[in-house]
Simulated assay, not measured.
Amino acid sequence: MSDRPAQGLRERKKAKTRALIQREALRLFREQGYAATTVEQIAEAAEVAPSTVFRYFPTKEDLVLVDQFPPFVEALRAAPRELNPVQAVRVTMRQVLDAQTPEERADSVEREKLMLTVPELWAASLDNIRGVMATVRDELAAREGRDPGDPEIRNVTGAIMGVMWALWFDWAKDPSMEVVEAFDQALAHLDAGLPISRGDQSPG
């Protein structure tokens, strides 16, 4: 008899436990502050042992920094090959954001706020951003059959990530933002070459 169903059940249980731990951690960070919250308090709130928290999140910083990046990578790899890098990321972002629940989006905003406002997380946040950029660069290079060190791949990755992070900062300040449409429009603007609309204004 195959043990695949049992393996699938175990993985779903692990995912639920991981999500619960992170959700309780974010709630406690919001209510009593990042520095004042202990791993023991998080474990108690999630009704797990402290060792279980560390099994899913090796450091306290990981409770904020570790997110749902793997689904993004999987969706990017599955994006139609005829799309250029910006278009591929645009399709991927819409797919990933559309799949999120309201709770998952709220957690994303909470993580962004913490990364931007907690000094203890700044260095870890920079490493996290660097890692995300490197992964996106490598994936885009593979799609285009180019070397990850290619200057053109570096430039397009930087442009994409710059547009996305600028919007993410605004989203952290205004969680009511229609984020799916905002990301879609921002990446469409980048794909169009970032034109600046001047309306009917004339010089002089």
Score class of each variant (00 low, 15 high):
1 M>G: 13
1 M>D: 06
1 M>I: 07
2 S>N: 11
6 A>R: 10
7 Q>L: 13
9 L>I: 12
10 R>T: 02
11 E>H: 12
12 R>C: 05
13 K>G: 07
13 K>Q: 13
14 K>C: 09
15 A>W: 06
16 K>S: 12
18 R>C: 06
20 L>A: 13
20 L>S: 10
20 L>E: 13
22 Q>C: 05
22 Q>S: 11
24 E>Y: 05
25 A>F: 08
25 A>L: 04
26 L>G: 01
30 R>D: 14
31 E>Y: 06
31 E>P: 01
34 Y>H: 06
37 T>N: 08
38 T>D: 06
38 T>E: 09
40 E>T: 15
41 Q>L: 00
41 Q>T: 01
42 I>R: 04
42 I>F: 05
43 A>Q: 07
43 A>M: 02
43 A>P: 00
45 A>D: 04
48 V>N: 09
50 P>W: 11
53 V>A: 09
53 V>N: 09
57 F>N: 08
57 F>A: 08
59 T>S: 14
60 K>C: 03
60 K>T: 04
64 V>W: 06
66 V>C: 05
68 Q>C: 03
69 F>Q: 12
69 F>A: 12
73 V>K: 12
74 E>S: 15
74 E>G: 10
76 L>Q: 04
77 R>P: 00
78 A>I: 00
79 A>E: 01
80 P>Q: 04
81 R>M: 03
84 N>F: 04
93 M>F: 10
98 D>A: 11
99 A>P: 00
100 Q>D: 06
101 T>I: 02
102 P>T: 01
105 R>H: 10
107 D>G: 09
107 D>V: 00
108 S>R: 13
108 S>T: 13
109 V>W: 05
110 E>D: 12
111 R>A: 03
118 V>Q: 11
119 P>Y: 09
121 L>P: 00
122 W>H: 15
122 W>R: 15
124 A>M: 02
124 A>E: 05
126 L>F: 13
127 D>A: 15
127 D>S: 15
129 I>A: 13
130 R>H: 12
132 V>R: 14
132 V>I: 12
133 M>L: 11
133 M>I: 11
134 A>Q: 11
135 T>G: 00
136 V>T: 08
136 V>I: 09
138 D>F: 04
141 A>C: 00
142 A>P: 01
143 R>C: 00
143 R>D: 00
144 E>T: 01
144 E>F: 01
144 E>L: 14
145 G>D: 05
146 R>P: 00
146 R>Y: 06
148 P>D: 07
150 D>R: 07
150 D>V: 02
151 P>E: 04
153 I>Q: 02
160 I>M: 05
160 I>Y: 09
163 V>T: 13
163 V>W: 09
164 M>R: 10
165 W>H: 15
165 W>D: 11
171 W>F: 15
172 A>C: 03
173 K>T: 10
176 S>P: 01
177 M>G: 07
177 M>S: 08
177 M>P: 02
180 V>L: 01
183 F>R: 08
183 F>A: 12
183 F>H: 15
187 L>H: 10
188 A>G: 08
188 A>V: 01
188 A>W: 10
192 A>H: 11
192 A>D: 11
192 A>N: 09
193 G>C: 08
195 P>R: 03
196 I>G: 08
196 I>F: 14
198 R>H: 11
199 G>A: 05
199 G>T: 05
199 G>Q: 09
201 Q>D: 13
201 Q>E: 13
203 P>D: 07
